[in-house]
Nucleic acid binder design. Sequence first.
DNA 1: TAGATTGTTAATCGATTAACAATC
DNA 2: TAGATTGTTAATCGATTAACAATC
Lengths: 218, 218
Amino acid sequence: MPIRTGPVVVPAAVIKRLPMYYRYLQVLVDEGLERISSRELSQLMGITSSQLRQDLSYFGEFGQQGYGYKVTELYQAICEILGLEKQYKTVLVGVGNLGRALINYQGFSRRGLNLKGIFDNNPAIIGENINGFTVRSVEELRPYLQKEGIQIGVITTPASAAQEIADILIAGGVTGIWNFAPQHISTLEDVIVENTHIGDGLLSLFFKMKHQERLELK
Amino acid sequence: MPIRTGPVVVPAAVIKRLPMYYRYLQVLVDEGLERISSRELSQLMGITSSQLRQDLSYFGEFGQQGYGYKVTELYQAICEILGLEKQYKTVLVGVGNLGRALINYQGFSRRGLNLKGIFDNNPAIIGENINGFTVRSVEELRPYLQKEGIQIGVITTPASAAQEIADILIAGGVTGIWNFAPQHISTLEDVIVENTHIGDGLLSLFFKMKHQERLELK
DNA sequence: TAGATTGTTAATCGATTAACAATC
DNA sequence: TAGATTGTTAATCGATTAACAATC
């Protein structure tokens, strides 16, 4: 789905690449690099310089002719575009294997995800402590959301429970859902659902390995 | 990159959707559903029935006019297409936060990823036991690969180490690399690299939430 | 200034969708 | 048989790339 920012419509394909720009620029900032050209950056990333410049043009003018881009300036611009200045209060629902992995992974707090509570419907694990979070009953979810002003819900339940949980999250005022369940989530218009399936990349890898000898040489 | 299977060239966009078909069909098989039409399945998945039928047509004819698809048959066909009948011997390099999360996550073994060894260069954690795996020194990686006949390497190191590790993996005979580092990996022609960045979905969610009021209504 | 590199236009390329003949 | 639904064609739509005037 394309997005309108001011008078400009940003294509879906461009939005999907923004996090990639963020990742690469973060590394370059850490390395202390001062300037980079679209040609150099695009080569690092394995895309064309044309695409890089075209993508950035949807958001403004960030470079200087004959010079290129100042790395920290471009990085900050991308952070601003992505909305990384904010912190989002978040709950996670579904403390299975995947849920536990995500709770233990610190990478998201760096990006502004502020995990407040974790929930499950399995009595056997309610009360358990994981990485400093106590597992709460799903029964408590609905009131918790409003009391704490939760903005984002992470769904790591089985497919069968995902829509039901999404409905509770939405009723509780959440405006963003990060869904890991293999289930399409239906929502009202003003709730954003983002689907992530970490196993998908592995299956693509298997497919390409299987058909390796028949890879198009292009 | 499109892939040629037999006489047919499969578009990259189709390959990216194959794991999604796998996920949804797996759920339907578990639920014991016998038949489904392209219209029903596509609605579940949030795509058009046209796209579903078009996608499948690159691999053969799996349905019956007037009836639809037999769920288990279609599921098995997708498994076959993805190459899920095999097991792949795998190592993981980089036992940081993300690496630990992946080692603890059981979801991959179900799909045919057979983790054999885990490696890091930090002396402080070499010898540590994680989910039944002992952390080995990266020094041992190269000989280990050949001795064990490892086929896939998972890279969860910082960006700065990723290419160096990839070179060792390739020299050791690995033909598939699943890269989680924010670093483009250069390889020889017959090594497949698949990049996965779990944080990207979160950033897309932030972006869309920030620009929510300006969403294209379409 | 001369060389480098941007931002943008327009052409090309690829992906999606609508529509329908074929047929179970 | 009649109704339903596939597989496929062709048209539409969107994304990528090449090229270059503008300019630092």
